[in-house]
Amino acid sequence: MERKLVVSSSPHIKSPENIQSIMVDVLIALFPVALMAVFLFGFRALITMVIAMVAAMATEAIILRKGSFFGDGSAAVTGLLLAMTLPPAPPWWVVAIGAVVAIAIGKHIYGGLGNNIFNPALVGRAILFVSWGTHLSGSVWLKPVPFGFTADAVSQASPLVTHDASLGDLFIGTVSGSLGETSALALIIGAIWLFYRGHIDWRIPGGYIGIVFIFGLFAGGFSMGLYHVLAGGVLLGALFMATDMVTSPVTANGKLIFGLGCGVITMLIRLFGTMPEGVTFAILLMNGLTPLIDNMTLPKKFGEVKKSA
């Protein structure tokens, strides 16, 4: 035979899905959230998102020196997710530093994509929070003005502080808060896309949201449970942050434990801590526990009888 044949290990066919297509799916899922953010907070929200994404992608491109700006798309996702956790209009340099830190410290110190232990976007946010907390909370949150597209809106405190928003407002998103966390509706639409594409498992968001609801239920009844789920960053965290593939467990039981752990810590901080919100810290801590969780929840092999020991 004149042509050289190719020899490789089985299997010889592979699914069309690749890392880039997954990242694009995540970006698509974030699109309604981003749209809603612009709709609620005006163009400054858009500028924040663009700065974060560009800074993230530029950092990654410089570190990898591969020439491709978009690359596998993971930097864009990190940048956009970081923007989602920020208030509508922090100073531009805060956003940029956050994105650079997220990519450099959160991801590439560990050897790049897939190797990081902690969610890079949340690492970025946590570092910003510790560094320039005043730019990230309290008075800088804008009161959303639907269809307003105005840059100057009245500042307003988070519904987690005031506890006065209606459930309907929380669901639609006409409350103050970080870019991506106000509109439950948009988040759910995005998450449905991810479920449909098979990129997230019900266990993490299920465990997370479930336990938050139960804590809320005990703290103040059904509507309080719902309030805690809808207000603040729980939905964003449960649907988009905790479900980050790289930093969450791979085993089925592990995912459930991970979700429950995130929920418990979030609610501990919310109900008893000095900070109004605990999503970032909860997920980061559970990220750290992920290797242990994976090790403790090795699935039972097919046909294996439970060991008595």
């Binding site: 050289k4 044949l5 190719v6 020899v7 490789s8 290990s9």
Partner: peptide, 22 residues
């Protein structure tokens, strides 16, 4: 020259598993 094109893990021992090396 090679007798066929090998795809897969870039490791000599791994390559040896497929038709005794390329």
């Amino acid at each position: 020259p090679d007798k066929f094109e090998y795809q897969g893990v870039r490791d000599c021992k791994a390559a040896m598993m497929y038709s005794g090396g390329f």
